[in-house]
C-alpha cells in the first residue's frame, strides 16, 4: 500500500500530462478533483483507462469514478482490493 501511493502519483503525472508537478506536490489525502488538483471529467476517463490497463479494473460507469478517484489514498485502497493483475 505505502509503495503503491508514490507509484500512483508518478503514473498519474505521466498519464494526465501534469507537467511541472512533482509527486511531492500531490497530497495523497487531498481531493484530486475540484479544489485539490483540479482534475476534470476527461481526466476521470483517462484514469478509468489507466485502471483497466494496469490493474485490470473495469469501470463501466463514469460516475463510479467519482468515489474511487477522491484522493490518491482512496484510489490506492480501491486498487489493492480490486486489482486482477
Amino acid at each position: 500500500m505505502e509503495d503503491l501511493i508514490p507509484y500512483l502519483k508518478k503514473e498519474i503525472i505521466e498519464v494526465l500530462n501534469l507537467n511541472d508537478i512533482t509527486p511531492d506536490d500531490i497530497d495523497e489525502d487531498a481531493s484530486l478533483f475540484n479544489e485539490g488538483l483540479g482534475l476534470d471529467s476527461i481526466d476521470a476517463l483517462e484514469l478509468i483507462v489507466f485502471m483497466e490497463k494496469n490493474y485490470g479494473i473495469k469501470l463501466s460507469n463514469p460516475n463510479e469514478g467519482k468515489e474511487i478517484f477522491k484522493s490518491i489514498r482512496v484510489m490506492a485502497e480501491y486498487i489493492q482490493t480490486h486489482r486482477t493483475k
Partner: peptide, 10 residues
C-alpha cells in the same frame, strides 16, 4: 479497440 485514450480522441 480497447484502452484508447480519450484525450487523444478529443
Amino acid at each position: 479497440e480497447q484502452l484508447l485514450k480519450p484525450t487523444c480522441f478529443m
